[in-house]
Lab assay of single mutants.
Amino acid sequence: KELVSALYDYQEKSPREVTMKKGDILTLLNSTNKDWWKVEVNGRQGFVPAAYVKKL
């Protein structure tokens, strides 16, 4: 599985998104959309802005 690192804090703005803190390591589930990537963090799945994470 592919991992990404959070470059910035992000506070979810809808139920489809997830909150992350800078430095968090997230499991990348889907990166086909260039703007929003689906990740899993702390057992929750949702979307984060692609520009806020980088692949490890």
Rank of each mutant, 00 (worst) to 15 (best):
L28I: 08
D9T: 05
N30Y: 07
N33P: 05
Y8C: 15
N42E: 10
L7M: 10
G23D: 07
K34W: 07
L3C: 13
K13H: 09
L7P: 01
N42A: 10
S14G: 13
V48F: 00
E2M: 14
Y52V: 09
L7S: 05
S5A: 15
V41G: 08
R16W: 15
D24C: 07
Q45P: 06
Y52P: 02
G46Q: 02
E40A: 08
L26H: 03
S14E: 09
M20R: 00
R16V: 11
G23F: 05
L56K: 06
S31E: 14
V48W: 00
S14N: 13
V39F: 00
E17M: 06
V18S: 02
S31T: 12
T19W: 04
V41H: 14
L7R: 08
L7K: 09
R44K: 13
Y10M: 01
G43I: 02
L26R: 00
Q11M: 13
N42K: 09
Y10P: 01
G23N: 06
D35L: 13
T19Y: 04
Q45D: 07
D24I: 04
T19S: 15
P49H: 02
K1W: 13
K54A: 13
K13D: 06
T32Y: 10
D9G: 05
N33Q: 09
W37Y: 08
W36L: 04
I25A: 04
V18F: 11
Q11D: 14
Q45V: 15
T32F: 10
W36H: 03
G43W: 03
P49N: 03
L7N: 05
F47E: 04
A6F: 01
V4L: 12
L29S: 02
F47W: 15
N42I: 04
E40D: 08
D24S: 06
K55E: 09
K22D: 02
Q45K: 10
V4F: 12
M20N: 00
D35N: 13
N42W: 05
L56C: 13
F47V: 07
G46C: 03
D24W: 09
L3G: 03
G46I: 04
K34A: 13
K22S: 08
G46A: 04
E40N: 04
L56M: 11
L29W: 05
K21I: 09
K22W: 04
G46R: 02
Y10S: 01
K34I: 10
T27S: 09
K54M: 12
G46D: 00
K1V: 14
I25C: 06
L28F: 03
N42C: 09
D35G: 09
T19G: 10
D35H: 15
K38Q: 14
T19Q: 04
S14A: 08
V41M: 13
Q11L: 13
Y52D: 05
K13L: 10
P15G: 10
K54W: 07
E12F: 07
E40L: 07
K34Q: 11
T27W: 14
M20S: 01
V4T: 05
T19H: 05
K34S: 12
K34R: 13
T27R: 12
P49Y: 02
G43L: 04
V53D: 02
G46L: 04
K21W: 08
L7D: 03
L28S: 01
D24T: 06
E2Q: 14
E12I: 06
E40C: 11
R16I: 13
L3T: 09
Q11C: 13
V53T: 04
S31G: 11
K34G: 11
Q45M: 10
W36Y: 08
V18H: 03
W37H: 03
Y10D: 01
E17Q: 12
R44M: 08
Q11I: 15
S31M: 11
K38C: 14
N33D: 14
V39L: 03
W37L: 05
K55C: 14
N30W: 07
Y10H: 04
A51L: 10
E17D: 05
L26F: 07
K54Q: 14
S5P: 03
L26Q: 00
S5D: 04
L26E: 00
Y8S: 10
V48E: 01
V39P: 00
G43F: 05
S14C: 12
E12D: 05
P15V: 10
V4R: 05
E2C: 15
Y8H: 12
K38S: 08
E17T: 09
E40H: 05
K1P: 14
G43Y: 04
W37M: 04
T32P: 04
V18Y: 03
R16P: 05
V53M: 06
N33H: 12
K13E: 08
S14F: 07
Y52H: 10
L29R: 03
L56Q: 08
L56S: 08
K34V: 11
R44C: 05
A6C: 13
V18G: 02
N30A: 09
N30R: 06
S5C: 15
G23E: 03
N30Q: 11
Q11G: 08
Y10A: 00
F47M: 08
T32D: 15
W36S: 02
Q45N: 07
Q45Y: 08
V53C: 14
N42G: 12
K54C: 15
V4H: 06
K34D: 12
L3R: 10
D24M: 12
S14K: 07
N30P: 03
L26G: 10
L29Q: 03
L26K: 00
N33I: 06
N42S: 09
Y10F: 07
Y52A: 15
N33T: 06
L3P: 05
L3A: 07
E2H: 11
T32Q: 13
T19L: 03
M20W: 02
P15E: 12
G23M: 03
K55L: 15
Q11R: 09
L56N: 07
A50D: 02
Y8G: 06
E12K: 14
K21G: 05
P49G: 01
E40T: 05
Y10C: 01
P15K: 11
K38A: 09
P49F: 03
D24Y: 04
G46M: 05
E40Q: 09
W37T: 04
E2R: 13
L28M: 04
V48D: 01
F47S: 03
